[in-house]
Write a protein that binds this DNA or RNA. Structure first.
Length: 337
DNA sequence: AAGATGTTCAACCGCGGGCCC
DNA sequence: TGGGCCCGCGGTTGAACATCT
């Protein structure tokens, strides 16, 4: 018999290709795939597709299984905790969707990617900031993340985990505990903020507190948001931005983000989010007080810190939130989150 | 009510890496 | 060592649905 030429193979392959179905999966196809994998397991997708009697290529079967049919796929909207984790991990790893997805059980890389493109990038467009830019990451960390944390608090209050009244001027006491696979960041009058601790998410929140964050750079521009917007509105106008740079008056509270480069273990997540209490005057943060002090003063001893801080300040007295590194008339719409 | 526009997300595509022969 | 195959990843598309005008 004549040998099968490469051309024959290509033609045969093309004929098969033309018979392959594309587009949305039918219930029948889903059923075939589910039952075949239940009996034989997954993998070897091209062979699987043929053996299962599916007129699909292996890639399509794999995608359908991993992104839709697999039993442990989680359905429904991303929770604030999940959104927070995505923002955090993306700021660390960029578009490494599968890597990010590994830390959100039941969520697929495709889902996370879609979330990023449809929600997060939309916000970036509305803010007129290039997503992925330093400015955008700042905005995410300084504004979006705290809002998600606030959402967490609201959700947990709703579930009566810790009945209490919300009081945004309450000081955080930095107490932390680790129970039930959750990291708790709690304070005396609000329910704990919980980060999922799956795959050691944000594990270093339990490590000893790093040194206090530096004061904002002298060239930081601050925007102030009236507290009634913060509390009641889902759509915050940034147009009330202060025109001039201003160091926030203390007392204030901040979230800070530390990138602990001293930690040389193999844990892929090296950062921690912590909520700290500020600190009136005589505690090492005193350089933050007052508008007339040189913002960079008080940095002695911190020059060589291997921490990369981002921070958000809240004035306890005025209940205003002040953000660093943002400018322009912008709108951040929480409705789309 | 209907067409235009915007949004979401399942599915496809191309590419690169790893493995095997 | 190079070619073929498989797998997984990130980017992109387009159908379905929602909202706006």
């Amino acid at each position: 018999m004549s040998a099968i030429t490469k051309r024959d193979k290509v033609m045969s392959s093309n004929e098969e290709e033309s018979e392959l179905r594309r587009g949305p999966w039918t219930l029948e196809e889903d059923s075939l795939l589910i039952h075949y994998i239940a009996r034989h397991g997954e993998g070897r997708w091209n062979m699987l597709a043929k053996s299962a009697g599916l007129k699909r290529n292996g890639k399509s079967c794999r995608l359908r299984w991993l992104n839709y049919l697999k039993p442990d796929i989680k359905r429904g909207n991303l929770t604030p905790q999940e959104q927070l984790l995505i923002l955090e991990l993306h700021s660390r790893w960029g578009n490494r969707w599968s890597k990010i997805a590994q830390h959100l059980p039941g969520r697929t890389d495709n889902e996370i990617k879609n979330y990023w493109r449809t929600r997060v990038q939309k916000q970036a467009r509305q803010l007129n900031i290039e997503s992925g830019s330093k400015k955008f990451i700042d905005a995410v960390r300084c504004f979006w993340m705290p809002r998600l944390i606030q959402q967490n608090v609201n959700v947990e209050q709703k579930h009566n985990l810790s009945p209490s009244t919300s009081n945004s001027t309450t000081s955080y006491n930095s107490s932390m505990s680790n129970t039930n696979n959750l990291i708790h960041v709690s304070n005396s009058s609000q329910p704990p903020i919980m980060f999922p601790n799956t795959s050691s998410a944000l594990p270093n929140a339990l490590s000893p507190s790093p040194p206090p964050p530096p004061p904002p750079p002298a060239n930081h521009q601050f925007l102030s948001i009236p507290s009634n917007n913060l509390v009641h509105s889902d759509s915050l106008q940034f147009s009330q931005a202060l025109e001039t740079s201003e160091v926030p008056e203390s007392p204030y509270y901040y979230y800070y983000y530390s990138n602990n480069n001293n930690n040389n273990n193999n844990n892929p997540i090296e950062e921690s989010w912590e909520v700290n209490e500020n600190c009136n005057s005589n505690n090492g943060y005193g350089m933050m007080e007052g508008l007339n002090q040189e913002p960079m003063s008080g940095m002695e001893g911190y020059e060589n810190l291997q921490y990369d801080y981002d921070y958000q300040y809240q004035r306890a007295e005025s209940d205003e939130w002040v953000f660093g590194n943002m400018g322009g008339d912008t709108l951040w719409n929480m409705d789309t989150m």
